[in-house]
């Protein structure tokens, strides 16, 4: 499957690349959008063919990143519009979705988006119980009770659980 990016069919003049997600979906992206990712830019400089296979980014996440890249590559949009796009982009997204996004933007080296997503995740994480963090990040507590007590002793002031949230 080949999906064109948001700007619609590309003209013959504009160079484009095909990016394939780990689950096999292919996205046609203008080169000007692709090179906003430092990793993609490096790949394009090094290889001849225009197909890039990303083995660790799924189609949903890739579609979001490409929408971001295409918007930011659009010279017709003002910086203000791009900024409000960024805010809109992360607002209301589930924490789980943001996790995939931050990983993808880190891999693709899309610095600005990585920053925006990381900040949004941090805003959600603030004042949350440790149990919440474990649940949302799908992490098992691997400390012994003694090790846990030792860490709590180090920064006792941080462990006042009053007013922390669990949802």
């Amino acid at each position: 499957m080949v999906t064109t990016d948001e700007k619609g069919p590309l003209t013959a003049k504009k160079k484009s690349v095909i990016i394939r997600s780990c689950d096999g979906d292919e996205f046609l992206v203008s080169e000007s959008a692709a090179v906003l990712s430092t990793s993609l830019k490096k790949i394009l400089e090094e290889k001849e063919d225009r197909l890039i296979h990303l083995s660790d980014i799924d189609n949903k996440t890739l579609a979001m990143v490409i929408a971001y890249l295409s918007t930011h590559a659009d010279d017709g949009l003002s910086d203000d519009l791009k900024r409000s796009f960024d805010q809109e982009f992360v607002s209301g997204k589930e924490f789980d979705v943001l996790k995939y996004l931050v990983l993808a933007t880190d891999t693709l080296q899309v610095t600005c988006l990585c920053y925006t997503v990381a900040k949004k995740m941090a805003d959600i994480m603030k004042n949350k119980l440790v149990e919440w963090v474990r649940r949302e990040f799908d992490i098992q507590n691997d400390y012994t009770p003694e090790a846990e007590a030792e860490i709590r002793r180090l920064d006792a002031w941080a462990w006042d659980d009053r007013q922390l949230e669990d949802d």
Binding site: M125, K126, D142, W159
Partner: peptide
Amino acid sequence: ISFTSPRDACRSSIVS
């Protein structure tokens, strides 16, 4: 974590 707060960062150390 760098975008949270010192308190959140300290508490994060006990996650795993």
